[in-house]
């Protein structure tokens, strides 16, 4: 990946840092989903909670897919393309939806 960029490689390693930032963010979302599953297991598995928990896992997969696509785009040879607003909005909506599921699980 980095070899493909060859001599035009950015000495500030900006694409690499951005890729790692995406990885850190997926890691943070993984912790949140684990806490959600823990809340579900300790809450006696009510039907609404199971739906919210399943939705949390689904949203986590969505976020993983978004991050994966972005990481791929950044790893491509040549000048990296910038993030599209739609991509950013999708990542944000995943986070907001997880918060809504969390509210359902907590109450």
């Amino acid at each position: 990946m980095s070899e493909a960029r060859g001599t035009t490689r950015d000495p500030g390693l900006q694409p690499e840092r951005t890729r790692l930032a995406w990885r850190r963010t997926t890691l943070a979302s993984t912790v949140v989903v684990i806490l959600a599953v823990r809340a579900l297991l300790h809450g006696g598995m009510p039907a609404v909670g199971v739906v919210a928990g399943a939705l949390c896992c689904l949203l986590w997969l969505c976020f993983l897919w978004l991050a994966h696509r972005r990481i791929h785009a950044l790893a491509a040879p040549g000048q990296p393309v910038s993030l599209t607003p739609r991509h950013a909005a999708a990542a944000t909506l995943c986070t907001v939806a997880v918060a809504v599921c969390a509210a359902v699980l907590v109450l």
Binding site: P15, A28, L83, A102
Partner: peptide, 23 residues
């Protein structure tokens, strides 16, 4: 643009941390 993206991701992590704090 990439620096702006990283700032966005840092704020998103802050949001995730707050959600984790709620749990």
């Amino acid at each position: 643009s990439l620096a702006n993206e990283r700032t966005f991701l840092a704020w998103l992590r802050t949001a995730l941390a707050l959600i984790g704090g709620g749990f």
